[in-house]
Design a protein around this nucleic acid. Sequence first.
DNA 1: CAAGAATTGTTCAGAAATTCACAATTAAGA
DNA 2: TCTTAATTGTGAATTTCTGAACAATTCTTG
Lengths: 205, 205
Amino acid sequence: MRKVSPKTLTRALFYIRTLNRLLHLGGSVVSSKELADIMGFSDAQVRKDISNFGKVGKPRIGYKVAELKQVLEDFLVQDVVHAALFGVGNLGSAILRYSGFHQNKIKLVAAFDIDKNKIGKTINGVPVYAMKDIREIVRRTHVDIGIIAAPEEASQDIADLIVGSGLKGIVNFAPTSVSVPKGVFVKDIDLSIEFLSLFCDMQHS
Amino acid sequence: MRKVSPKTLTRALFYIRTLNRLLHLGGSVVSSKELADIMGFSDAQVRKDISNFGKVGKPRIGYKVAELKQVLEDFLVQDVVHAALFGVGNLGSAILRYSGFHQNKIKLVAAFDIDKNKIGKTINGVPVYAMKDIREIVRRTHVDIGIIAAPEEASQDIADLIVGSGLKGIVNFAPTSVSVPKGVFVKDIDLSIEFLSLFCDMQHS
DNA sequence: CAAGAATTGTTCAGAAATTCACAATTAAGA
DNA sequence: TCTTAATTGTGAATTTCTGAACAATTCTTG
């Protein structure tokens, strides 16, 4: 199958989210125009994206919701993604308790912190370990990605730990860039920047 | 001044973040190459972005950290951005307690919930109001953007409330698309999708 | 003061992403 | 059955974004 760009992949995840909602609402078919309107894309964009994954639609009809969802999921999220969390503070705790993951093939398998009061506890079913145990846990447990939800000062050290334990993907919520070797993927989510960029877009539009 | 693309604006916010860190570490000048390496961009990209905001650098020297930061901030974030939060659950509480905002010209001025046990309290200095009071609060208080951190089922109603109260920007953490009139900006942050998209990028690279 | 080295700002070319536009297809209805 | 209307899939056109390259500039050093 042809190479698909990251942008298309991300939009495809939004398509899946919307298709799930439509399924839940009882819809059975949907057109590119309807999908586009719901998500704020163009209909041409939707069709071109979907065409990456095969010829799923029928002219004059549209796409069968269940079938399209299946095709996208087969391509994108075959397995459950196992994630480990680093830093059980305000944000980390909220992530541990976030209820949206289990519907989306994401499983938090371990959390790490340096606070002795937290180590050994279980939050929402996820055990909290000492930071130094990461290598052993990653060896014993299937982990795909690491999530940094620690203070700025600790983020680079944690990134190094994550990389050292062999993981290749990091979601970084800390408000600072971390440097990693080539081949490791980092996604930065800085709440301040997210808010500010929305506001900048508003002002400079 | 020339029109600047949203992508450039977002990167510029990352530049500011990095410049702050450099300032804090005592750096006084920095080259495009250094900035690029820290953030994982190309040096040409950095120079081109910065050139949107004027001729700030000196050949053979680089950019004065403080001066560049000033130039970018003058263009991007002249005023403090005032935000109101909708939904004081796990994620909402973490946002209220997030410590990174005040350094970044973001101020949470109000929170809203439907839970009587939360209404009337103050969390981290931010008062929690009843959802129905939004119009009055927005009239009395300067609010730029609304943040939806409520369950999926409530998100569209909250978006309608936000739009009805006159706000033009929404950050939506709920795992569903909200529909808004033209002219209202929405930024979706779906934690599941963020994690999955990282993983997809890893697999399909 | 002149030569050399480093870095900017900018132009240009190429790549990537988006939109357009329409032939092909299919269901529905006369 | 034949026509009509709707919708897909896609090649071409367009726009946006990125990367390469280099003249212009300015510090440094001898």
